[in-house]
Nucleic acid binder design. Structure first.
Lengths: 248, 248
DNA sequence: CGGATTATTGAAAAGCCTCAAGAGTAGTGG
DNA sequence: CCACTACTCTTGAGGCTTTTCAATAATCCG
């Protein structure tokens, strides 16, 4: 029921990447009551239609947001990595409009919505960081819309791989050389609006062209330049430079 | 340079639809310095890469957000109707990640980002409403991702038509019977990830099936029930019932 | 080790796109 | 007010990307 482990370190790191905060802000975050929870793959953390009373952050592992059509087709609209908020939108929206599901074995920190609202109310800098986080999420949605709506399958998948590469590096996971991507090809397809069969063929093409190499669920980025240009990837939409680096 | 006309009426109406506010909030909004501007169709209100210093709201007419791929393909990621904020994301993001362009002749109210930030800082209820507005925009992006990623062309277009129907009615424009949709078929295609040729064929099919009738840029919804079911449309994602109706 | 899930591959079909041309519509200037 | 021009809409034909269906191989998990 208290702060330890990845929380509040990851929380503070996330907030610091979104706004300048001071020691009082850090103290307020550190004293935010939180509860660790570990769940197995496929566990639902949130279901469409629910009225949640808690909000969580991914500490270890991966999760994803999904929406389903009435006839059962799935679209994965976000992939959550360590440091990402699971359901910040529930801070002020009464009803969940999508599901969140664990992709891997997952450790999360949970806070009550009330205490998080209080934190946002009392600490303007933290509030701003949370808001910025929501805005960046919006920006990523816009880029995904462009990706799915207007890029052919090879560029679309290459773009997704580029995004993971950058985001995982920014989160301190993965290296220049590559990263773990614990998604099945069916899930990849659901994230970019393709079928798993086509994902398989396109990935093999990217591999044959020497842009990536795959080993199980590990992606080696063998030619970052060409991978980016195949995707027409530009990381601006991730707003990583949102604030100036904190002074020494 | 001051409040008149649609501003602040529309602004207040929007805020009231997102959170409960009191008379002091209303007064603060009313005293927000604003400037009216009217622009012709296709005018850019915001360009990707810019660092904006103002924020606007649509008062009359329509606008849209777009993103372009490096090879020139366009995706329209939002359509803005009267009462919508044009660039609320610039409140806290330094650099624009997309363009906003006038769809029709357009009248907007412009505020300085500084004064809007001050308003958000001083008036918690207004701030909450603005935040909620950002969150609802995110929810719409998620639904569009599902729509473009996983629905076939007829359902996809039907869904877009349903959304406009509901949003325009909520904004007091359009009736049960139908509405003006001042978009070319090419723009519709860019909004749902299809070509204008295919949009044309699909619209004619929807018309032949008796779901809609078209006259120029006017859409008559001749069978709302069947249009919704063709789209598997569920308006939950619009979060229209975000707050309880204001007490009498 | 055995069962289930995931990855891979082929063949055929479907949906959507491209190209192209003609018809309608709207805006502009004389 | 008409004619001209530029869009926009419409339609056809053909092609290409992606899907569907299906079967086998590989991998994961208990």
């Amino acid at each position: 029921m208290d702060s330890d482990y990845g929380m509040p370190a990851l929380f503070i790191r996330k907030i610091e990447s979104r706004a300048h905060i001071d020691d009082a802000d850090r103290a307020a975050i550190a004293s935010l009551p939180s509860k660790l929870r570990t769940v197995s793959p496929s566990t639902y953390l949130l279901r469409e239609g629910q009225t949640p009373v808690r909000c969580g952050m991914v500490l270890e592992g991966f999760a994803f947001r999904q929406k389903l059509t009435a006839d059962g087709n799935r679209e994965i609209v976000s992939v959550l990595i360590p440091g990402d908020f699971i359901d910040l939108q529930n801070l002020y929206l009464a009803q969940a409009d999508h599901d969140v599901q664990a992709l891997t074995r997952l450790t999360i920190a949970e806070f009550s919505l009330v205490s998080l609202r209080d934190l946002a109310h009392d600490r303007p800098a933290v509030r701003r960081a949370l808001w910025v986080d929501c805005l960046i999420e919006s920006s990523i949605y816009r880029e995904w819309l462009l990706n799915i709506g207007r890029r052919p399958a090879p560029a679309r998948l290459a773009h997704l791989l580029c995004e993971f590469h950058i985001r995982l590096q920014a989160a301190g996971l993965g290296t220049d050389a590559g990263y773990e991507l614990p998604m099945t090809q069916e899930q990849l397809g659901d994230a970019v609006g393709l079928t798993s069969v086509h994902v398989n063929r396109v990935l093999k093409t990217l591999e044959r062209q020497g842009l990536i190499r795959r080993a199980g669920r590990h992606i080696d980025v063998t030619d970052w330049e060409r991978l980016q240009s195949a995707a027409h990837f530009n990381k601006r939409y991730l707003h990583l430079d949102q604030i100036a680096p904190t002074p020494a």
